[in-house]
């Protein structure tokens, strides 16, 4: 049963990933783009964990943790950049 569900969930996540990048492209302001990028990183973590379930190996979980960590740091750095004046 899990073998059938995993590809479906991965398809959902990939569609979400692409849709998040639509917001990255059209987002009118920089904060909109940052929120969408954060969302995309969250979806990548979910994708990695789904791949772990599908392949039955747990080797990629530390990769998921470090992507979550890096995306948080990146978001905070961008927020500081925006509050210091941004690209203007």
């Amino acid at each position: 049963m899990v073998e059938f569900v995993c590809p479906i969930v991965m398809l959902m996540l990939i569609v979400s990933f692409g849709a998040a990048f639509v917001r990255v492209v059209i987002g009118p302001t920089l904060p909109d783009r940052v929120v969408a990028l954060d969302m995309a990183a969250t979806i990548v973590v979910a994708l990695i964990l789904t791949h772990c379930v599908q392949s039955g190996s747990s080797y990629y979980i530390p990769a998921a943790i470090s992507i979550a960590l890096l995306s948080f740091i990146g978001t905070v750095a961008l927020a500081l950049y925006i509050s210091k004046g941004g690209p203007s």
Binding site: M1, V2, V5, C6, I8, V9, M12, L13, V15, S16, A19, A20, R23, V35, A36, M39, T42, I43, A46, T50, V53
Partner: peptide, 18 residues
Amino acid sequence: SAFLLIGGLLSLVAVAGV
């Protein structure tokens, strides 16, 4: 399967909201 499907659906909802 249920938890994975819920997670996938919620990701879709989140992106639809964004």
